[in-house]
Design a protein around this nucleic acid. Sequence first.
RNA 1: GCGGCUAUAGUUCAGUGGCAGAACGCCGCUCUGUGGCAGCGGAUGUCGUGGGUUCGAAACCCACUAGCCGCCCCA
Length: 430
Amino acid sequence: MSTLKAVRGTRDLLPPETDLWNRVEATARAVFARYGFGEIRTPIFEATELFARGVGEETDIVSKEMYTWEDRARAASEKAQSLTLRPENTAGVVRAYIEHKLGDTGNLQKLFYIGPQFRRERPQRGRYRQFWQIGVEVLGPVSSGAESPIRDAEVLEMLASLLDELGIRNWQLQLNSVGSSTDRPRYIAALREALAPVKHLMCEDNQRRAETNPLRVLDSKDPNDQELINNLPKIADFLDEASTAHFAQVREALDACGVPYTVNPRLVRGLDYYTRTTFEFTVPDGQGLGTQNALLGGGRYDGLSEMLGGPRAPGIGFAIGEDRLILTLQAQSAETTTTKLDAYIAPLGIPQNAAALALARELRRAGLSVEVGDGSFRVKKSFEAADKVARHIVLLGEDEVSTGILTVKTFATGEQVKVDKSTLASHLRT
RNA sequence: GCGGCUAUAGUUCAGUGGCAGAACGCCGCUCUGUGGCAGCGGAUGUCGUGGGUUCGAAACCCACUAGCCGCCCCA
């Protein structure tokens, strides 16, 4: 009989690492609140069709990475249907937007989510089969301003602030516009045409991409092909007037905010629904992520709602790879400081155990974090145990219980004082 | 999905065919109301799993599993 383990590509998150996860999520929630975002929680599985139509039948995510199963009908009134664990959250949010007629309020919807996503890829550092995303979506009817470039710039500026507040250093914003849903096909056609005479000079991978997905040739890292790639048509030359102006206004607003960015005409993204503004935040190599250097990605999806049978509802959003964010934070901070409890209460004999727990109850109710030892421990053992988890040790022997004057030692300073029970809580806070 | 590297104590790792090891950590004692230092002692374990070669396998071979690296792709 083999022992049971977390399945491939999944993992347990344990303390103290979970403290970091909670800090990241709390910071994200606080920042989102300042920008007027509200939380949305959508189901972890959806109809397979949602992702096929939303993310795109031809994408790798849909064609080979989804956890899909046939959900059997359990009664004559039920019908069997194909269900899928969500590989991303944007399609689910837009589905909810349509289903609850959020557009009918006329208001701009600013939504955020935090939750697990599932893709059946080969696991690697920073790439898991169950991974966590922190994302936001801004969408609504055109009259709500959902299409405005100021929405794009606001989202990007918020991300820059969030990463700064989290303490991520050296992030870079890569920015591009992939144009409208009519610009893109024209560009892809031109790309195919330009690739036809030169692709035989390129590496094997790029020859294949030239056939299957010409946009992907653009982010090839093959050093020999760089010159050929640089000579390919640029998407910027295929944007219609409206998309060009839109992109210019996004950049202008970012400049005004002082958010640094690099326009990267070769930035392409793998999901079919992206239009106009697309972006990635990356960190340099060697800062925890290996080759998965994209911390987060996102873009505008002006046609997604219609693709899913909904009303016109342009929008923009992003998803942060929370696992990657955590890896980067761990790599960038030399020391992971574990937060210590306020106090450790050490009963000096078994008769003091009950009093120790009663004292702990009082202190905990006063808002302090407290651990309680055991009267059977030797004093030395109590000190050692206390020093590992707490900033102060409170000694509770016969004398202390009878007089209410407690002995408190502070580990950082080695200072030991007698403290009356009535002032204990305030003393321990220091 | 493809290619490569790796898997030994809680952790980091050494051990290339002959008794399962080191450091750190852990537990105990020196030391029954004052720890961190020191001394002494102790436990670390299915050597990833299964099979094979051999008198003998942690080591060599095969398969599997997992992790990491690269590709693909993406967050």
